[in-house]
Design a protein around this nucleic acid. Structure first.
Lengths: 118, 118, 118, 118
DNA sequence: GTGGTCTAGACCACA
DNA sequence: GTGGTCTAGACCACA
């Protein structure tokens, strides 16, 4: 796994988003054990506290659960994951549509561009 | 005009992006005079230094030009604007497609969602 | 203000609770400016990061709002405060009643003890 | 018996408190033999060391006594238990009254709420 | 080894 | 001066 960060946004948020996407997309399966905070910090070349904060984000959204002495795992609740997927996809479509409209593109043009890009 | 900022990204970048979009979309016409740094700062409830920095961004990309004595204006060069529009649209489509693929959506589903949202 | 902490619970939670109680009870009025993170940290003889974390708790509950460059203030929304008051009082009564029942006291005895203590 | 712990307080203290309450309330009778450390650990899904530490707490307060060869039992001394009950009840009433006063409730309101909750 | 909390201290964006 | 982020590193509770 490669970890590259955008300097203009908090690293902990970028880590949280990356993990959320991995869970939503099924790259990390429900119930699957996550890397420990320390290991993930090593992998991403980041301080453990930064990973810790990313994890807190995911816990507060119920996507990840903690077992105090044996680490963290992806939630077992399919519905939580499905909701997160929906929420994220809808937000992305909405934002994207707004941006393209603003640049003066029509729905047809946009769909055309997407098909070419896909 | 309403100015709302996302706490997680530098404000000067958000201002620069907003202005760039306004220019690309034609809301600000080629050659049009921009608000002064001072006035824009007032409008956005932001420190003039912040607006100043956003302007430097736009100048460095050639989208905005400076007149020593009469402030800044949108470039007169249609081509610069057209290129910026293309560049931005392509980047957005590419990123959006990648994100939706990652969440497991097909091009058809995405086009469907866009049509509904539009 | 005196700040004494219970060694058995996280300091940041104790700070958050204390502030929440001060707001709920009206000791800190709606819209009132809070001490800065740094000043509160000095007052409580605690690291600024610890206060920061307490503040994040309160923000996530909407009880406190941030103005990026001018500090934090108590929410202006009466309803948020009223809800927090209700929530806290109900939780306290429920827990207290359960504990006293468990020790074998009757409602009458408890009410008697409260009247004497009050 | 169900054992659920609050992540924000030491587990050994929570176990000690639970046992103390069971003794005070008579759920565990004077002189009664306690579960072995090992069994209690199993029941609570906790490491034996943690239960051990809880037991030490209770022994130091005289509520539980050790028999080198036959495990631990609840004290036979009624008075120790009675004192513990009184101490705990008084402390709870005092703390509860203080908290509710602080939130601006009157003794009457509180007694009303308790009666409803009981 | 696992997570949780806390400190000391640096550096950034913004007013 | 205000908040926000991050690092390095210590120390704790628990298994």
């Amino acid at each position: 796994m490669s970890w590259q960060f955008d300097n203009n946004r908090p690293i902990y948020l970028q880590i949280a988003e990356r993990l959320e996407r991995d869970i939503i997309s099924g790259r990390l399966k429900k119930g699957e054990k996550l890397l420990s905070v320390r290991d993930l910090a090593l992998e991403a070349s980041v301080n453990p506290n930064t990973v810790q904060r990313a994890m807190q984000e995911l816990e507060s959204r119920g996507i990840v659960t903690v077992q105090r002495t044996s680490g963290r795992q992806v939630t077992n609740d399919d519905e939580v994951i499905a909701k997160a997927r929906n929420f994220l996809a809808t937000a992305q479509v909405r934002q994207f549509a707004a941006q393209m409209k603003q640049l003066g593109y029509t729905a047809e043009q946009v769909n055309q561009m997407i098909s070419e890009e896909w």
